[in-house]
Design a protein around this nucleic acid. Sequence first.
DNA 1: CAGCTGACGGTAG
DNA 2: CCTACCGCCAGCT
Length: 112
Amino acid sequence: MQESHARVYEAIAAIPRGRVASYGAIAARAGLPGRARLVGKLLGETPEGMELPWYRVLRASGHVALPPGSRGFREQCRLLRAEGIEVTNGRVPLSRFGLDADLDRALWGLPP
DNA sequence: CAGCTGACGGTAG
DNA sequence: CCTACCGCCAGCT
């Protein structure tokens, strides 16, 4: 387990219930700007049982990243809806469920 | 050491 | 909305 990987997991674990964040935002929060792909890779290797809100991580567009129709895709939509997040056609309206600048700052102490 | 490979992101058409 | 490209770079082969 690499230090950078651990920070990615921490960033994901910090996403509040009922909200979502993009791969890029997680990477940035983990001190790895521009490494969104690394975040995706890690989640791909994440064991089923691991306690981590992996399903709260979406593409910057609000779309679920997994292949539409795949098992993981359906599971992610289910988990998101289970905590009140609206998912239509594999997409979540970030305008309402995404972490905005204010919440982002309050949660992670980022500069204004 | 030289490629390959992404649960990505942004732009252009 | 969709496809096509290109930039990205740690981690694997």
